[in-house]
């Protein structure tokens, strides 16, 4: 299996404080990687680095075999997209919010893909509704649709179901799983819900204080953690 990302000595620091410090990490093409850990562990910052929204202060990120020094090319940036916990939707209709993904990429917006994604996410009836009137679950479904409508190679999810009800959680997980299975999209998902990591991820990593404490196949991560901190996290103990 080839690597989508390879990180070598990647650190991201603000002054003396390094919020991400990862000596080595490989994200395999087509895998679902779960990231768990306490708040402030550097998970979201890592995702921003992987989405090329920020450049690490030290070290090197290699994406699909290409070393990314400084700003990533537009084509590389467009290969990767993030769905955030609190999606910012435009003051437009639901359909326009899904279409914007393809518009920004200069892709055909009349190819039926917007309608297809609206249907997949159960949003067809809301297509003409103003996006600002949606519930949190509906808004998150729109955010997922606008991310997937451009068919990214990598989908980054930053606590996508953080404040959603079980119905929406199930729907989003199902879409993520099928996107991964059908298109081989590489997916990295940050979650506070260990059960979600267990349900979705092929491998799971625990981040604490900017470091990757343990990264293992999900089953092994939960059933036979190698590190005391992982064991404590899996047990539900508080990590500081």
């Amino acid at each position: 299996m080839t690597a989508t990302y390879e990180l070598a000595d990647v650190r991201h620091c603000y002054g003396d404080r390094c919020v991400v410090d990862i000596p080595t990490l490989e994200v395999r093409s087509g895998e679902i990687l779960g990231l768990v850990g306490p708040s402030g562990a550097g998970k979201s910052t890592l995702l921003r680095l992987l989405n090329f929204l920020e450049t690490p202060t030290h070290g090197l990120i290699t994406y699909a075999g290409v070393e990314i020094g400084g700003d990533a090319s537009l084509a590389t940036r467009r290969d990767v997209t993030t769905v955030f916990q609190r999606p910012m939707l435009l003051r437009r209709s639901v359909a326009a919010n899904v279409r914007i993904g393809r518009k920004l990429h200069g892709l055909d917006t009349k190819d039926g893909s917007t309608e297809r994604w609206l249907e997949k996410l159960g949003l067809t009836d809301l297509a003409d509704a103003p996006a600002r009137t949606l519930s949190a679950g509906e808004a998150q479904r729109v955010a997922l649709a606008r991310a997937l409508v451009v068919e990214p190679s990598v989908l980054l999810l930053d606590e996508p179901t953080g404040n959603l009800d079980p119905y929406n959680v199930g729907l989003l997980e199902e879409i993520v799983r099928s996107e991964n299975a059908e298109r081989g999209t590489t997916i990295i998902v940050i979650t506070h819900d260990v059960f979600q990591a267990r349900r979705l991820a092929d491998r799971t990593g625990l981040m604490v204080s900017g470091r990757m404490v343990e990264l293992a196949a999900t089953e092994a991560f939960f059933s036979a953690p190698q590190q005391p901190q992982t064991a404590a996290f899996v047990r539900g103990d508080l990590l500081i």
Binding site: L53, V80, T82, F84, P87, M88, L90, I100, H105, R146
Partner: peptide
């Protein structure tokens, strides 16, 4: 957050 999310969509 809007500009950041638009950038992440490839804008």
């Amino acid at each position: 957050n809007l500009p950041v999310q638009m950038l992440s969509l490839g804008a």
